[in-house]
């Protein structure tokens, strides 16, 4: 997946459940047009759309409209590492959609200026922990279709630390348009992990 792109944007929805409402908002002519106007440096969008069979079906549905109405040429192929891949170009931006890859978040968020993610703790931590060297803007989108999974709580809790921005599917467009390239606020980085404390507690319990 190496290439000569300038900057990229990563959209990631997690492995287990797909997030069709978010994918629909991203793979949208208006959204990508906005990106090409507002973020001149972004020339590649990487979308991770989900492992389940139904997600491939969902992708076909979303891409059908794009192919028919906007005459976009979509290349589809099966990749050993990434599953079913879809590739196409809108306004000189290359959009690559992959099913899943374990190391995707860790590896690719480093090369991104913006990451749009579902509000799962795994993905959030992957992105925030790889953030140290460059300033990635992380926008977390709450999947309101999932019952009782605490995505809103998690998103709000992290937002209150100032390390990311949290919003709903309907607010994504406005979130991305606003605050281009961190004009206003620069996001903070998360305090270092305190996992070593657990070692101390284990030792303390052995000694007691």
């Amino acid at each position: 997946m190496t290439g000569n792109w300038k900057e990229q944007m990563l959209v990631t929805t997690g492995a287990t459940v797909s997030f069709p409402l978010l994918i629909e908002k991203i793979i949208d002519f208006k959204f990508i047009e906005m990106i090409s106007q507002k973020y001149k440096n972004i020339d590649r969008i990487l979308v991770q759309y989900g492992k389940p069979e139904t997600s491939v079906h969902m992708m076909h549905q979303i891409l059908d409209d794009l192919q028919k109405v906007k005459k976009v040429k979509v290349k589809e192929y099966d990749d050993e590492k990434y599953g079913i891949v879809f590739e196409f170009k809108i306004n000189e931006i290359l959009i690559k959609c992959v099913q899943y890859d374990n190391l995707l978040n860790e590896q690719y968020s480093k090369k991104c200026s913006i990451v749009i993610s579902h509000a799962g703790t795994g993905t959030i931590m992957d992105v925030l922990r790889s953030k140290s060297d460059n300033n990635i803007r992380l926008i977390v989108v709450v999947n309101e279709q999932l019952a009782d999974n605490h995505q809103k709580e998690i998103g709000d809790a992290f937002e209150s630390l100032g390390v990311l921005e949290c919003c709903t599917v309907n607010e994504v467009f406005d979130k991305v348009v606003s605050n281009v390239a961190g004009e206003n606020s620069e996001s903070k980085s998360l305090p270092a992990s305190r996992g070593a404390v657990v070692y101390n507690i284990v030792s303390e319990m052995i000694m007691s």
């Binding site: 101390n200 507690i201 284990v202 052995i206 000694m207």
Partner: peptide, 25 residues
């Protein structure tokens, strides 16, 4: 217990620690 746990390594050598690796997350 103390809020700040202490840090020593004595007398804990070779004690048995069982760790559950649940699944996924």
């Amino acid at each position: 217990f103390n809020k700040e746990p202490f840090t020593t390594n004595n007398n804990i050598k070779n004690t048995k620690l069982t760790i559950l690796l649940g699944s996924g997350g």
